[in-house]
Simulated assay, not measured.
Amino acid sequence: MATGETGFKDVAYDLVSVQYHSLKAGHDYGQYVRDAKNAGETEIADFFQDVMREDSERAARCHDFLTELAEKGDIGPAAS
């Protein structure tokens, strides 16, 4: 999406996108953990929990970056 289409700079849009997808995936991984546990696959369940934690950390990092951009007034509207 080109700068200006959303009213926000591309980097802000990109961070929001990564944050959204990380949070959405984290929600889905909860089911994967349950499936693995129900199948008696503890190691796989642990793997999915690690992936879920990594996505949670990624979403939090995006939030931090977005906060920094907002505090600098560098989040939007996009420059012409």
Rank of each mutant, 00 (worst) to 15 (best):
S17M: 04
R34H: 09
D50A: 02
S56I: 06
Y29G: 01
V11R: 05
S56D: 08
A79N: 11
R58M: 06
Y29C: 03
D10E: 15
V33W: 10
F47N: 00
E41K: 14
M52C: 02
E43D: 15
F8Q: 10
T42Q: 11
G7A: 06
A36Q: 12
D74K: 08
E54H: 05
M52Q: 15
Q31E: 12
E57N: 10
E5A: 07
A78Q: 10
N38S: 13
R58W: 01
A60R: 12
D10A: 15
Y32Q: 13
S80D: 07
D28Q: 12
L23F: 00
C62R: 05
G26S: 11
E5Y: 07
Q19Y: 02
G4W: 11
T6R: 04
A2M: 09
E43K: 14
Y20Q: 07
D74Y: 03
G7Q: 03
M52F: 00
L15W: 00
G26W: 05
D14F: 02
D28S: 06
V51E: 03
G26I: 04
K24H: 15
R58I: 00
A36K: 06
Y20P: 02
G30N: 13
A39V: 05
A12S: 15
P77H: 01
T6I: 02
D64M: 08
S56G: 15
A59R: 00
G30A: 07
F47Y: 14
D10H: 08
Q49G: 01
R61F: 02
S22A: 15
Q19W: 04
F65Q: 09
T42A: 15
M1L: 13
A2N: 12
H63E: 01
T67D: 13
Y13R: 14
G73N: 09
A2V: 09
R34N: 13
V18H: 00
T6N: 06
R58K: 10
A60M: 07
K37S: 12
Q19S: 07
H21I: 01
K24W: 09
V16E: 03
Y32G: 07
S22D: 10
Y32P: 01
E41G: 03
T42P: 01
F8I: 04
I75E: 14
L69Q: 04
A79L: 12
A79P: 00
I75R: 03
I75L: 14
K72D: 12
E5T: 13
L69F: 11
T3Y: 11
G73H: 06
H21A: 01
Y13W: 08
Y29H: 03
H27I: 14
A78N: 03
K72T: 05
T3E: 15
D46V: 04
A39L: 11
F65S: 11
T6D: 07
D64Q: 14
S80G: 10
H21Y: 12
A25Y: 09
V33H: 10
G73S: 11
D14V: 08
A59K: 00
D50M: 02
E68S: 04
L66R: 04
R34D: 14
E41T: 00
L15S: 01
F65I: 09
Q31N: 15
R34C: 01
F47W: 07
G4Q: 12
E54P: 00
A60P: 01
K9L: 11
R34S: 15
C62D: 03
I75Q: 11
D74F: 08
K37N: 13
P77Q: 05
G73K: 12
S22R: 00
V18D: 00
L66G: 14
E57Y: 01
T42I: 06
